[in-house]
Amino acid sequence: MTILPVPLSTLQPGEKSKVIQLDVKGLLRRRILDLGIVPGTVLTCIGKAPAGDPIAYLVRDTVIALRSEDASLIYIDSAAR
């Protein structure tokens, strides 16, 4: 089975997948790590704001909202959806 990384921002509400890799830089990277978004973490997309952005994700029993361009720097496993 090959793992195909796709950006987290492509995850649609209701879908669920695993983080493969973080391409986020600097402070944001730290923050995202501290919230427990690390390779292997399971994320569920809960919903989008009325304007389509930001997007809310369920991470380790908490809900975290990210802007889509930040979410697009987090890669998830497309097969695990």
Binding site: D34, L35, G36, V59, R60, D61, T62
Partner: peptide, 9 residues
């Protein structure tokens, strides 16, 4: 208590 996994960090 509802999100120990994150909080324990």
């Amino acid at each position: 208590a509802t999100s120990l996994e994150r909080n324990l960090n």
